[in-house]
Design a protein around this nucleic acid. Structure first.
Lengths: 191, 191
DNA sequence: ACCAGAAGCTACGAGCAATAGCTTTAAAGC
DNA sequence: GCTTTAAAGCTATTGCTCGTAGCTTCTGGT
Protein backbone atom coordinates (compact mmCIF):
# COMPACT_ATOMS: atom_id res chain seq x y z
CA UNK A 1 0.00 0.00 0.00
CA UNK A 2 2.74 2.48 0.73
CA UNK A 3 6.15 2.05 -0.82
CA UNK A 4 9.00 3.74 1.00
CA UNK A 5 6.46 4.03 3.84
CA UNK A 6 7.60 7.62 4.12
CA UNK A 7 5.05 10.37 3.98
CA UNK A 8 1.36 10.52 4.55
CA UNK A 9 -1.04 13.36 3.99
CA UNK A 10 -1.29 13.89 7.71
CA UNK A 11 2.46 14.07 8.08
CA UNK A 12 2.64 16.68 5.33
CA UNK A 13 -0.02 18.74 7.09
CA UNK A 14 1.86 18.46 10.37
CA UNK A 15 5.06 19.72 8.79
CA UNK A 16 3.16 22.53 7.07
CA UNK A 17 1.53 23.62 10.31
CA UNK A 18 4.93 23.71 11.96
CA UNK A 19 6.13 26.12 9.29
CA UNK A 20 3.05 28.29 9.74
CA UNK A 21 3.50 28.30 13.49
CA UNK A 22 7.11 29.37 13.21
CA UNK A 23 6.89 32.07 10.60
CA UNK A 24 3.28 32.78 9.78
CA UNK A 25 1.08 31.72 6.88
CA UNK A 26 3.05 33.75 4.35
CA UNK A 27 6.10 31.58 5.03
CA UNK A 28 4.32 28.43 3.98
CA UNK A 29 5.75 27.07 0.77
CA UNK A 30 5.72 23.63 -0.76
CA UNK A 31 9.47 23.83 -1.20
CA UNK A 32 9.98 24.25 2.53
CA UNK A 33 7.59 21.46 3.38
CA UNK A 34 9.43 19.20 0.97
CA UNK A 35 12.77 20.11 2.49
CA UNK A 36 11.56 19.22 5.99
CA UNK A 37 10.04 16.01 4.71
CA UNK A 38 13.35 15.11 3.10
CA UNK A 39 11.73 14.84 -0.26
CA UNK A 40 11.73 16.62 -3.61
CA UNK A 41 9.01 19.20 -3.97
CA UNK A 42 6.96 17.47 -6.68
CA UNK A 43 6.67 14.37 -4.52
CA UNK A 44 4.31 16.25 -2.25
CA UNK A 45 1.67 16.16 -4.95
CA UNK A 46 1.27 12.46 -4.22
CA UNK A 47 -0.19 13.40 -0.84
CA UNK A 48 -1.74 16.79 -1.46
CA UNK A 49 -3.58 18.12 -4.49
CA UNK A 50 -1.84 21.48 -4.49
CA UNK A 51 -0.95 24.37 -2.21
CA UNK A 52 -4.55 25.51 -1.83
CA UNK A 53 -5.53 22.01 -0.81
CA UNK A 54 -2.75 21.91 1.76
CA UNK A 55 -3.98 25.19 3.22
CA UNK A 56 -7.47 23.81 3.39
CA UNK A 57 -6.23 20.75 5.26
CA UNK A 58 -4.42 23.02 7.70
CA UNK A 59 -7.58 25.02 8.29
CA UNK A 60 -9.53 21.82 8.75
CA UNK A 61 -7.19 20.49 11.38
CA UNK A 62 -7.05 23.81 13.22
CA UNK A 63 -10.82 24.19 13.31
CA UNK A 64 -11.21 20.63 14.57
CA UNK A 65 -8.59 21.16 17.24
CA UNK A 66 -10.36 24.31 18.33
CA UNK A 67 -13.71 22.54 18.48
CA UNK A 68 -12.13 19.86 20.69
CA UNK A 69 -10.53 22.45 22.94
CA UNK A 70 -13.81 24.29 23.36
CA UNK A 71 -15.74 21.11 24.00
CA UNK A 72 -13.26 20.09 26.66
CA UNK A 73 -13.38 23.49 28.29
CA UNK A 74 -17.16 23.59 28.35
CA UNK A 75 -17.88 20.15 29.74
CA UNK A 76 -19.00 20.14 33.34
CA UNK A 77 -19.62 23.87 33.49
CA UNK A 78 -22.67 26.04 33.18
CA UNK A 79 -23.78 29.52 32.28
CA UNK A 80 -21.26 32.20 33.20
CA UNK A 81 -18.61 29.71 34.18
CA UNK A 82 -18.98 27.86 30.91
CA UNK A 83 -18.88 31.04 28.87
CA UNK A 84 -15.74 32.14 30.69
CA UNK A 85 -14.09 28.76 30.18
CA UNK A 86 -14.98 28.85 26.49
CA UNK A 87 -13.48 32.28 26.10
CA UNK A 88 -10.33 31.30 27.96
CA UNK A 89 -9.90 28.17 25.87
CA UNK A 90 -10.31 30.10 22.64
CA UNK A 91 -7.77 32.66 23.73
CA UNK A 92 -5.36 30.04 25.05
CA UNK A 93 -5.37 28.24 21.74
CA UNK A 94 -4.50 31.37 19.79
CA UNK A 95 -1.91 32.38 22.36
CA UNK A 96 -0.16 29.07 21.85
CA UNK A 97 -0.55 29.23 18.06
CA UNK A 98 -0.82 32.88 17.13
CA UNK A 99 -0.29 32.28 13.43
CA UNK A 100 -3.35 30.11 13.15
CA UNK A 101 -5.77 32.99 13.43
CA UNK A 102 -6.47 32.97 9.72
CA UNK A 103 -7.76 29.42 9.82
CA UNK A 104 -10.46 30.50 12.28
CA UNK A 105 -11.35 33.68 10.43
CA UNK A 106 -11.82 32.31 6.94
CA UNK A 107 -15.33 31.31 6.05
CA UNK A 108 -15.58 27.76 4.78
CA UNK A 109 -16.38 27.31 1.14
CA UNK A 110 -20.04 26.43 0.93
CA UNK A 111 -19.24 23.40 -1.19
CA UNK A 112 -16.66 22.11 1.27
CA UNK A 113 -18.68 19.77 3.44
CA UNK A 114 -15.86 18.62 5.69
CA UNK A 115 -14.75 22.11 6.60
CA UNK A 116 -18.29 23.40 6.89
CA UNK A 117 -19.08 20.60 9.29
CA UNK A 118 -15.98 21.35 11.36
CA UNK A 119 -16.90 25.01 11.77
CA UNK A 120 -20.44 23.95 12.48
CA UNK A 121 -19.08 21.81 15.30
CA UNK A 122 -17.52 24.89 16.88
CA UNK A 123 -20.82 26.73 16.69
CA UNK A 124 -22.54 23.72 18.22
CA UNK A 125 -20.40 23.95 21.33
CA UNK A 126 -21.25 27.61 21.75
CA UNK A 127 -24.91 26.86 21.18
CA UNK A 128 -24.81 24.18 23.84
CA UNK A 129 -23.19 26.55 26.31
CA UNK A 130 -25.86 29.16 25.67
CA UNK A 131 -28.74 26.72 26.10
CA UNK A 132 -29.17 27.33 29.85
CA UNK A 133 -29.74 30.99 29.13
CA UNK A 134 -33.04 30.06 27.58
CA UNK A 135 -32.75 31.94 24.31
CA UNK A 136 -35.10 31.22 21.45
CA UNK A 137 -33.43 30.17 18.25
CA UNK A 138 -32.93 33.60 16.71
CA UNK A 139 -31.64 34.99 19.98
CA UNK A 140 -29.21 32.12 20.28
CA UNK A 141 -27.84 32.92 16.84
CA UNK A 142 -27.35 36.58 17.72
CA UNK A 143 -25.77 35.70 21.05
CA UNK A 144 -23.43 33.19 19.42
CA UNK A 145 -22.30 35.76 16.88
CA UNK A 146 -21.62 38.33 19.58
CA UNK A 147 -19.73 35.91 21.76
CA UNK A 148 -17.68 34.58 18.90
CA UNK A 149 -16.97 38.03 17.49
CA UNK A 150 -15.80 39.46 20.79
CA UNK A 151 -13.62 36.54 21.80
CA UNK A 152 -12.22 35.94 18.33
CA UNK A 153 -11.57 39.63 17.91
CA UNK A 154 -9.76 39.90 21.18
CA UNK A 155 -7.69 36.75 20.73
CA UNK A 156 -6.94 37.64 17.12
CA UNK A 157 -5.75 41.13 17.92
CA UNK A 158 -3.65 39.80 20.78
CA UNK A 159 -2.18 37.11 18.53
CA UNK A 160 -1.16 39.63 15.93
CA UNK A 161 0.45 41.85 18.55
CA UNK A 162 -2.27 44.45 18.36
CA UNK A 163 -2.19 45.34 22.02
CA UNK A 164 0.92 47.43 22.25
CA UNK A 165 0.37 49.13 25.56
CA UNK A 166 1.92 47.85 28.76
CA UNK A 167 -1.36 47.41 30.62
CA UNK A 168 -2.13 43.84 31.59
CA UNK A 169 -3.90 42.05 28.76
CA UNK A 170 -5.22 39.36 31.09
CA UNK A 171 -7.10 42.02 32.98
CA UNK A 172 -8.55 43.42 29.77
CA UNK A 173 -9.80 39.97 28.92
CA UNK A 174 -11.39 39.62 32.33
CA UNK A 175 -13.26 42.84 31.67
CA UNK A 176 -14.41 41.49 28.32
CA UNK A 177 -15.61 38.23 29.83
CA UNK A 178 -17.53 40.09 32.50
CA UNK A 179 -19.16 42.26 29.86
CA UNK A 180 -20.14 39.23 27.83
CA UNK A 181 -21.58 37.25 30.71
CA UNK A 182 -23.53 40.23 31.98
CA UNK A 183 -24.60 41.09 28.46
CA UNK A 184 -25.82 37.58 27.75
CA UNK A 185 -27.66 37.50 31.05
CA UNK A 186 -29.37 40.79 30.36
CA UNK A 187 -30.21 39.73 26.84
CA UNK A 188 -31.83 36.54 28.11
CA UNK A 189 -33.85 38.38 30.74
CA UNK A 190 -35.10 41.20 28.58
CA UNK A 191 -38.13 40.77 26.41
CA UNK B 1 10.51 67.44 -11.50
CA UNK B 2 8.56 64.63 -13.05
CA UNK B 3 9.36 63.55 -16.57
CA UNK B 4 6.52 61.80 -18.38
CA UNK B 5 4.37 63.15 -15.52
CA UNK B 6 2.84 59.74 -15.36
CA UNK B 7 2.74 57.87 -12.08
CA UNK B 8 3.06 58.94 -8.50
CA UNK B 9 3.39 56.84 -5.38
CA UNK B 10 -0.17 57.73 -4.42
CA UNK B 11 -1.49 56.65 -7.80
CA UNK B 12 0.27 53.31 -7.48
CA UNK B 13 -1.26 52.80 -4.05
CA UNK B 14 -4.69 53.67 -5.39
CA UNK B 15 -4.38 51.10 -8.16
CA UNK B 16 -3.09 48.53 -5.71
CA UNK B 17 -6.00 49.09 -3.32
CA UNK B 18 -8.42 48.66 -6.21
CA UNK B 19 -6.91 45.25 -6.89
CA UNK B 20 -7.15 44.29 -3.23
CA UNK B 21 -10.75 45.47 -3.08
CA UNK B 22 -11.68 43.42 -6.10
CA UNK B 23 -9.97 40.16 -5.38
CA UNK B 24 -8.49 40.21 -1.90
CA UNK B 25 -4.95 40.78 -0.67
CA UNK B 26 -3.68 37.56 -2.19
CA UNK B 27 -4.45 38.90 -5.64
CA UNK B 28 -2.15 41.86 -5.22
CA UNK B 29 0.82 41.56 -7.51
CA UNK B 30 3.22 44.12 -8.88
CA UNK B 31 2.63 42.77 -12.36
CA UNK B 32 -1.08 43.55 -12.13
CA UNK B 33 -0.47 47.00 -10.73
CA UNK B 34 1.94 47.68 -13.57
CA UNK B 35 -0.56 46.49 -16.13
CA UNK B 36 -3.25 48.82 -14.79
CA UNK B 37 -0.79 51.66 -14.66
CA UNK B 38 0.14 51.02 -18.27
CA UNK B 39 3.75 50.54 -17.37
CA UNK B 40 6.35 47.80 -17.27
CA UNK B 41 6.63 46.08 -13.91
CA UNK B 42 10.14 47.26 -12.98
CA UNK B 43 9.07 50.86 -13.47
CA UNK B 44 7.02 50.61 -10.29
CA UNK B 45 10.21 50.48 -8.27
CA UNK B 46 10.67 54.16 -9.03
CA UNK B 47 7.62 54.89 -6.89
CA UNK B 48 7.63 52.06 -4.37
CA UNK B 49 10.53 50.33 -2.67
CA UNK B 50 9.15 46.83 -3.13
CA UNK B 51 6.01 44.79 -2.64
CA UNK B 52 6.24 44.89 1.15
CA UNK B 53 6.53 48.65 1.01
CA UNK B 54 3.47 48.86 -1.21
CA UNK B 55 1.51 46.75 1.26
CA UNK B 56 2.62 49.02 4.06
CA UNK B 57 1.42 52.06 2.13
CA UNK B 58 -1.93 50.38 1.60
CA UNK B 59 -2.23 49.64 5.31
CA UNK B 60 -1.28 53.21 6.10
CA UNK B 61 -3.95 54.67 3.88
CA UNK B 62 -6.60 52.28 5.16
CA UNK B 63 -5.83 52.99 8.80
CA UNK B 64 -5.93 56.72 8.15
CA UNK B 65 -9.22 56.44 6.32
CA UNK B 66 -10.64 54.47 9.20
CA UNK B 67 -9.44 57.04 11.72
CA UNK B 68 -11.16 59.76 9.70
CA UNK B 69 -14.37 57.77 9.44
CA UNK B 70 -14.43 57.14 13.17
CA UNK B 71 -13.65 60.77 13.98
CA UNK B 72 -16.47 61.92 11.76
CA UNK B 73 -18.89 59.44 13.28
CA UNK B 74 -18.01 60.40 16.83
CA UNK B 75 -18.18 64.16 16.54
CA UNK B 76 -21.23 65.71 18.12
CA UNK B 77 -22.23 62.58 20.01
CA UNK B 78 -21.74 61.36 23.54
CA UNK B 79 -21.59 58.20 25.60
CA UNK B 80 -23.80 55.42 24.32
CA UNK B 81 -24.73 57.26 21.17
CA UNK B 82 -21.09 57.92 20.38
CA UNK B 83 -20.08 54.33 21.04
CA UNK B 84 -22.86 53.10 18.78
CA UNK B 85 -21.89 55.52 16.04
CA UNK B 86 -18.29 54.44 16.31
CA UNK B 87 -19.23 50.80 16.02
CA UNK B 88 -21.48 51.47 13.05
CA UNK B 89 -18.81 53.45 11.28
CA UNK B 90 -16.24 50.72 11.80
CA UNK B 91 -18.61 48.09 10.48
CA UNK B 92 -19.72 50.27 7.57
CA UNK B 93 -16.15 50.74 6.44
CA UNK B 94 -15.45 47.02 6.40
CA UNK B 95 -18.76 46.29 4.72
CA UNK B 96 -17.81 48.62 1.92
CA UNK B 97 -14.25 47.29 1.74
CA UNK B 98 -14.31 43.74 3.07
CA UNK B 99 -10.85 42.89 1.80
CA UNK B 100 -9.21 45.60 3.87
CA UNK B 101 -9.66 43.77 7.15
CA UNK B 102 -6.03 42.71 7.20
CA UNK B 103 -4.82 46.28 7.23
CA UNK B 104 -6.70 46.89 10.47
CA UNK B 105 -5.62 43.66 12.12
CA UNK B 106 -1.90 43.83 11.52
CA UNK B 107 0.10 45.38 14.32
CA UNK B 108 2.30 48.22 13.14
CA UNK B 109 5.99 47.59 13.17
CA UNK B 110 7.33 49.31 16.23
CA UNK B 111 9.95 51.09 14.15
CA UNK B 112 7.38 52.39 11.70
CA UNK B 113 6.52 55.79 13.09
CA UNK B 114 4.03 56.79 10.42
CA UNK B 115 1.94 53.67 10.72
CA UNK B 116 2.23 53.59 14.50
CA UNK B 117 0.97 57.13 14.64
CA UNK B 118 -1.94 56.30 12.34
CA UNK B 119 -3.08 53.41 14.50
CA UNK B 120 -2.57 55.58 17.54
CA UNK B 121 -4.94 58.09 15.98
CA UNK B 122 -7.63 55.43 15.83
CA UNK B 123 -7.13 54.59 19.48
CA UNK B 124 -7.28 58.30 20.30
CA UNK B 125 -10.78 58.56 18.87
CA UNK B 126 -11.95 55.65 20.98
CA UNK B 127 -10.28 57.13 24.03
CA UNK B 128 -12.05 60.40 23.44
CA UNK B 129 -15.39 58.68 23.12
CA UNK B 130 -14.83 56.83 26.37
CA UNK B 131 -13.82 59.94 28.30
CA UNK B 132 -17.36 60.81 29.48
CA UNK B 133 -17.55 57.42 31.16
CA UNK B 134 -15.00 58.65 33.67
CA UNK B 135 -12.56 55.77 33.52
CA UNK B 136 -9.11 56.06 35.01
CA UNK B 137 -6.28 55.47 32.59
CA UNK B 138 -5.91 51.72 33.05
CA UNK B 139 -9.66 51.24 32.85
CA UNK B 140 -9.77 53.27 29.67
CA UNK B 141 -7.16 51.00 28.13
CA UNK B 142 -9.10 47.88 29.05
CA UNK B 143 -12.35 49.37 27.82
CA UNK B 144 -10.75 50.43 24.54
CA UNK B 145 -9.40 46.95 23.95
CA UNK B 146 -12.78 45.35 24.61
CA UNK B 147 -14.61 47.77 22.39
CA UNK B 148 -12.13 47.44 19.58
CA UNK B 149 -11.94 43.65 19.87
CA UNK B 150 -15.69 43.18 19.79
CA UNK B 151 -16.38 45.56 16.93
CA UNK B 152 -13.37 44.55 14.89
CA UNK B 153 -14.13 40.89 15.49
CA UNK B 154 -17.71 41.27 14.39
CA UNK B 155 -16.96 43.38 11.34
CA UNK B 156 -14.04 41.16 10.38
CA UNK B 157 -16.04 37.96 10.58
CA UNK B 158 -18.85 39.54 8.62
CA UNK B 159 -16.42 40.80 5.99
CA UNK B 160 -14.95 37.36 5.51
CA UNK B 161 -18.39 35.84 5.16
CA UNK B 162 -18.23 34.19 8.54
CA UNK B 163 -21.91 34.59 9.33
CA UNK B 164 -23.47 31.95 7.20
CA UNK B 165 -26.87 31.68 8.81
CA UNK B 166 -29.88 33.50 7.44
CA UNK B 167 -30.66 35.42 10.64
CA UNK B 168 -30.39 39.17 10.27
CA UNK B 169 -26.82 40.30 10.85
CA UNK B 170 -27.92 43.87 11.55
CA UNK B 171 -29.92 42.65 14.48
CA UNK B 172 -26.94 40.69 15.81
CA UNK B 173 -24.89 43.84 15.66
CA UNK B 174 -27.56 45.75 17.55
CA UNK B 175 -27.33 43.14 20.27
CA UNK B 176 -23.57 43.51 20.36
CA UNK B 177 -23.77 47.30 20.60
CA UNK B 178 -26.27 47.05 23.45
CA UNK B 179 -24.00 44.66 25.28
CA UNK B 180 -21.04 46.96 24.84
CA UNK B 181 -22.79 50.11 25.96
CA UNK B 182 -24.29 48.37 28.97
CA UNK B 183 -20.98 46.71 29.73
CA UNK B 184 -19.06 49.96 29.54
CA UNK B 185 -21.62 51.65 31.75
CA UNK B 186 -21.44 48.90 34.33
CA UNK B 187 -17.66 48.91 34.21
CA UNK B 188 -17.57 52.64 34.83
CA UNK B 189 -19.98 52.41 37.76
CA UNK B 190 -18.45 49.46 39.53
CA UNK B 191 -15.47 49.88 41.83
C1' DA C 1 8.36 -15.05 -7.92
C1' DC C 2 5.81 -11.71 -10.11
C1' DC C 3 3.23 -7.83 -11.06
C1' DA C 4 0.45 -3.68 -10.26
C1' DG C 5 0.32 0.45 -8.17
C1' DA C 6 1.94 3.79 -5.04
C1' DA C 7 5.77 6.91 -3.99
C1' DG C 8 9.47 8.89 -5.32
C1' DC C 9 12.54 11.24 -8.81
C1' DT C 10 14.38 14.65 -12.78
C1' DA C 11 13.19 17.89 -16.20
C1' DC C 12 10.62 21.53 -17.54
C1' DG C 13 7.42 25.72 -18.16
C1' DA C 14 4.99 29.75 -16.44
C1' DG C 15 4.41 33.61 -13.23
C1' DC C 16 6.31 36.63 -9.99
C1' DA C 17 9.77 39.82 -7.34
C1' DA C 18 13.73 42.12 -7.72
C1' DT C 19 18.24 44.08 -9.65
C1' DA C 20 21.31 46.02 -13.27
C1' DG C 21 22.08 49.00 -16.64
C1' DC C 22 20.50 51.73 -20.50
C1' DT C 23 17.39 55.38 -22.82
C1' DT C 24 14.15 58.95 -22.89
C1' DT C 25 11.98 62.85 -21.29
C1' DA C 26 10.83 66.95 -18.90
C1' DA C 27 11.99 70.62 -15.92
C1' DA C 28 15.51 74.19 -14.37
C1' DG C 29 19.37 77.28 -15.11
C1' DC C 30 22.07 80.09 -17.89
C1' DG D 1 16.53 78.87 -26.69
C1' DC D 2 19.87 75.61 -25.58
C1' DT D 3 22.07 72.66 -22.35
C1' DT D 4 22.23 70.09 -18.40
C1' DT D 5 20.50 66.86 -15.08
C1' DA D 6 17.86 63.83 -12.79
C1' DA D 7 13.62 61.45 -12.68
C1' DA D 8 10.88 57.99 -15.08
C1' DG D 9 10.63 54.71 -18.03
C1' DC D 10 12.49 50.53 -20.61
C1' DT D 11 14.77 45.60 -21.67
C1' DA D 12 17.35 41.83 -19.95
C1' DT D 13 18.27 38.74 -16.45
C1' DT D 14 18.30 36.03 -12.04
C1' DG D 15 16.17 33.33 -8.55
C1' DC D 16 12.26 31.42 -6.40
C1' DT D 17 7.80 29.46 -6.56
C1' DC D 18 3.85 26.34 -8.13
C1' DG D 19 2.53 22.91 -11.01
C1' DT D 20 2.75 19.12 -14.84
C1' DA D 21 4.82 15.35 -17.51
C1' DG D 22 6.95 11.32 -17.64
C1' DC D 23 10.16 8.01 -15.87
C1' DT D 24 12.04 4.87 -12.08
C1' DT D 25 11.87 2.28 -7.92
C1' DC D 26 10.09 0.10 -4.20
C1' DT D 27 6.43 -2.42 -1.80
C1' DG D 28 2.65 -5.49 -0.82
C1' DG D 29 -0.53 -8.95 -2.39
C1' DT D 30 -1.40 -13.08 -4.95
Amino acid sequence: MSPRAGLTTDAVVTLAIAIVDEGGPAELTLAKVAERAGVAAPSLYKHVKNLADLKRLIDLRVVREMADALRTAATGRERGTAVGALADAYRDYLQKHPHRTGALTAAPDRADDELSQATHAVAEVVFAVLRPFGFDHAQAVHATRCLRAAVHGFAGLEASGGFGRPEDVDESFEVLKTMLVQGLTNYSEQK
